[in-house]
């Protein structure tokens, strides 16, 4: 079906939004909207850890201090939320997943990120490696605020932002692709914004 022209609709194009950086169906915002399925958890840092479990030789675990002692990276990326907003040039600080997986033997091809509050999301392992994903604890030069996922969230900017799980506490490596929270509730298993993979069947 060709698109239906909306009588009198002109839209409001933004000159400062380069088309090659804004995926189909998205619009650019300067705000940082918040979307979460439940209350914001507040885990004290002395009770916080990050674990890699599942298809691994042994449990790997970092306390907050141990994670922060790892080499961190500053990255500036564009992020794209499935609810249609995109935000360009967002500045994060975090530890690369490559750093966390360094030396870990696994036959897994997928991962499920798990979080405080019970949220989960699934990703192919290859989307978490090769400099494409981080455990991020800093945003805009400040500690990441709880409502945006602090103390730490996953950052996987090349996929829709629900994959960048807030309040992340670890990765469970799996041999099969196991749908996470939104993926069981109508949203796409993979979530590539450039292919507009928003919902089941997209």
């Amino acid at each position: 079906m060709p698109p239906i022209i909306s009588r009198g609709f002109k839209g409001r194009r933004r000159d400062d939004a380069p088309p090659d950086r804004v995926p189909p169906g998205q619009y650019v915002t300067n705000d940082f909207p918040v979307l979460s399925a439940g209350p914001t958890p507040h885990t004290p840092l002395d009770q916080w850890d990050f674990a890699i479990v599942g298809e691994v030789d042994e449990l790997h675990r970092w306390t907050w201090e141990e994670l922060r002692a790892l080499p961190s990276e500053s990255v500036t990326v564009d992020i794209h939320c499935v609810t249609k907003w995109s935000k360009l040039d967002t500045a994060w600080e975090g530890v690369s997943i490559d750093t966390l997986l360094d030396g870990i033997e696994t036959s897994a091809e997928y991962a499920v990120a798990f979080c405080d509050g019970g949220y989960t999301t699934n990703l192919p392992l290859e989307d978490l490696t090769g400099g494409k994903a981080w455990v991020s604890f800093g945003y805009g030069g400040e500690p990441l605020e709880p409502e945006h996922g602090g103390p730490a969230r996953l950052l996987v900017p090349h996929l829709y932002f629900w994959k960048s799980a807030k309040w992340v506490r670890g990765l469970r490596l799996t041999t099969a692709d196991e749908p996470g929270f939104w993926e069981q509730n109508g949203y796409h298993l993979y979530g590539d914004p450039w292919r507009e993979q928003r919902y089941w069947g997209d």
């Binding site: 915002t29 909207p33 918040v34 979460s36 399925a37 439940g38 209350p39 914001t40 249609k84 409502e147």
Partner: peptide
Amino acid sequence: VEAVAEALVELGHEPLRIKTERFGPTG
């Protein structure tokens, strides 16, 4: 939503029984 969900948790409601939907200043 942040304030209400926090108050509900404070009152003793189980976080997993509190479903939220939020909209930001844009949209």
